[in-house]
Each structure stands twice: as structure tokens, then as C-alpha cells.
Simulated scan of single mutants.
Amino acid sequence: MTVDTVVDIARETLWVIVKVSAPMLGISLIVGLIISIFQTITSINEQTLTFLPKLLAIFTVLILAGSWILNSITSYTTELFTNFARYLG
């Protein structure tokens, strides 16, 4: 296995991680921003107020995009195992 192959595998792995985590991180960011604006407008300084809405939003995204996330991870793992002999040679 060459250094270029290892770098390619690492790059593809990081890209899959970013791709499958982006929906959850994005919705968490949006919900946190909305709650922060609400707290600023109403002068509520409760730090734990954002926890439950973020949690519910992330669970909703997992329910809606879970099959896509699982398919992405499964296809990448299948690709890695399929090309295993090529990586050794």
C-alpha cells in the first residue's frame, strides 16, 4: 500500500464523515441560532433552554435522513472491502 493510497482512503473517509454529519450539525446550528435570538429578545439567560429543542431537531433529522446516512456509510464500507485486495498490492 502506497502513501497516496492511504491519503486517498483517509480523505474519502473524512469526506463521508462530514457528509453524513452535516444535516445534524446544520439543524443544530439553525435551532441554536433561533433559540439564541429568542433569548436575546426576551432577555432570558437560561443556558439549558437550547438542549431539548436541539435534541428533538436532531432526532427528527435522524428519522428523516437516517436511511440516507446508513446507505452512505454502507456503500463506502462496501467499497473499502471490495477494493481490499487492491489496497494490499
Rank of each mutant, 00 (worst) to 15 (best):
L64K: 06
K19C: 05
P53Y: 02
V20L: 03
L80E: 11
L14R: 07
A22M: 01
S43I: 08
I17C: 12
Y76E: 10
Q39T: 12
L80H: 08
T74I: 04
T82L: 11
I9E: 04
I27L: 07
V3K: 00
V18R: 03
I63V: 14
V31Q: 08
Q47N: 07
T50V: 14
E79W: 13
T42Q: 10
D4Q: 09
V31T: 09
V6F: 14
S21C: 09
I73W: 02
T13R: 02
I41H: 00
G89T: 15
D4L: 15
G32I: 05
R11V: 15
S72P: 01
A65R: 02
S72V: 06
L14D: 05
W15S: 12
T82D: 13
I41Y: 03
L49W: 11
K19M: 14
L62N: 10
V61K: 03
L88K: 05
E12C: 10
T42S: 10
T74D: 07
A57M: 12
E12P: 00
G26H: 08
I69H: 12
N71I: 05
L29T: 08
I9P: 02
I17H: 03
L55H: 07
K54I: 15
N71T: 10
M1W: 04
L56I: 15
I35T: 12
F38R: 00
T82V: 15
E46T: 09
I9R: 01
L49F: 02
I63G: 06
L56K: 10
V61Q: 06
T2N: 14
G26A: 07
E46G: 11
Y76P: 05
F38A: 14
I69M: 10
I34G: 01
M24Q: 07
I30C: 02
K54D: 03
T40R: 02
S43Q: 14
Y87P: 07
T48S: 15
R86Q: 14
L55Q: 03
N71G: 01
I34F: 11
V18W: 07
V61N: 09
T82G: 03
I58Q: 04
L25Y: 04
A10P: 00
I73S: 00
T13Y: 03
I27M: 08
F84D: 12
F84H: 07
L88R: 14
F51W: 08
F84Y: 11
F84Q: 08
F81I: 15
Q47E: 09
T78H: 10
W68D: 10
D4E: 15
I37T: 13
V61L: 02
T82F: 14
M24E: 00
S43T: 07
I34D: 03
I35E: 06
A10K: 00
L25M: 12
L55T: 11
N71Y: 05
D4N: 14
Q47D: 11
A22W: 07
S36W: 15
S28Y: 02
V20W: 05
F81C: 11
T82K: 15
V16F: 10
G32V: 11
L62Y: 04
D8F: 06
G26V: 13
P23N: 08
G32S: 03
P23T: 02
I44E: 08
L52N: 01
G66D: 01
A57F: 11
K54R: 09
K54Y: 09
I41R: 04
I44C: 00
I35P: 01
N71W: 12
I37A: 03
S75H: 13
E12I: 13
V7W: 05
